[in-house]
Design a protein around this nucleic acid. Sequence first.
RNA 1: GGAGAGGUGGCCGAGCGGUUUAAGGCGCGCGCUUGGAAAGCGUGUGUCCCGCCACAGCGGGACCGGGGGUUCGAAUCCCUUCCUCUCCGCCA
Length: 423
Amino acid sequence: MLQVNYIKENKQEVIERLAIKNFTDTDIIEKIILLDNNRKEIQKKLDDNLSESKSIAKEIGILFKTGKTGEANQLKQKTGDLKKLSKELSEQLDKTSKDLKYLLLEVPNIPHPAVPKGKTEEDNKIVFEEGELPKLDEVALPHWELAKKYDIINFELGSKVTGAGFPFYKGKGARLQRALINFFLYEALKEGYLEYQPPLLINEASGYGTGQLPDKDDQMYHIGIDNFYLIPTAEVPITNIYRDTIIKEGDFPIKNVAYSSCFRREAGSYGKDVRGLNRLHQFDKVEIVQIQHPEKSYQTLEEMKEYVSSLIRKLELPFRISILCGGDLSFTSALTYDFEVYSAAQKKWLEVSSVSNFESFQANRMKLRFKDKNGKTRLAHTLNGSALALPRIVAALLENNQSDNGIKIPKVLVDYTGFELIS
RNA sequence: GGAGAGGUGGCCGAGCGGUUUAAGGCGCGCGCUUGGAAAGCGUGUGUCCCGCCACAGCGGGACCGGGGGUUCGAAUCCCUUCCUCUCCGCCA
């Protein structure tokens, strides 16, 4: 959520930069400014009114205490009109504030100047590429075939027990999953992240805090009976730790890491692009979250980018990094780096991580603040990134490392898997 | 699932219709004291909104889990909802 004052003071800039995100509803900006002015006016009237009522009530109190009941009763009659007016004004104020908040929730975060214009992922700007693309035989198999051949992931069984998009990992498949989770967690610990194991269900307030609600509620699984949501990412519980808090400036940077299963309904978009592990309803991810001083958040974003790169490099996978264009950038993000690994048998790039700076957008929504040197309360910046999401990493590992002998496990993982080959 | 207790400032904790402008304590900031520190003494100490004015300050309003009500006046009374704790039941 953007701050109204920022919108007011930088109206033209806000409109121009939101256009990069293909948000062109300038009316809404005008309405926000108008509503905020109304809100202030009503607030002033209401406050004056309440002030008067309060002082009369106090007088009556004193009169009763000193036995001047007659005078007190006279004064009582004066308050009728004031009371009525207060009620009207506070209803107006309430409505105006609600309308204002509703509109503010509709406005996406302002993209960073580095964000390129564009509509689809075609327009994302590739800023880095590393590793040689493996050349496989024509007989090379896609990962869903490999999974079947070596009996390590069973999609049909998942369909039977739950539904499409909920696979079983089996034998060395399951062990590979566990190895990757451990590897990612230990690497994060080395980087100074504090490990959390969060709840997998969250309440409504947390959904609003990180911005999944109100607009993305259909993408989360909902437990109606208790009104909980299954987390789409550990970002939600981990960032919400700091909802409604004021932290000390000395606490920056806060660096948290968490492994969790992630649950996504992602209604629609079925087809060949979503076969196998490419898109699942339940998957595993290790997520890093940082809370940082506004002046250091972009430096932190770069550090996180380097960290994620180092993980993929250790797994010996070719990858590239792009800056998401305005159209592909999420509602809440100001700048996002997307990481893709090359999946040799499918001959395409698979997204395995996105690392984002939300600036104060999430912080404003969840009232995450800090006291600066001068004792002023300011909004902190939040950042997060996948480090990493498992399924597409597994897909690339299986496909890229296949040979006649079996699938070779990258050196760095062998200590965690306890085997070097899936055969 | 059943029964009970309770949600008050950064924390503990009093208040249970009218100078509450939320006591007191702890913590923290500043000052005095000291060779330095501790102790002691003094002093200050929340969040949000509005106005004046602006590197600071002054004034007003809201906030005692959330929402609603009674009243001239609510932390205090009533309704409703959420949460926490204890005991019982069930259970990894």
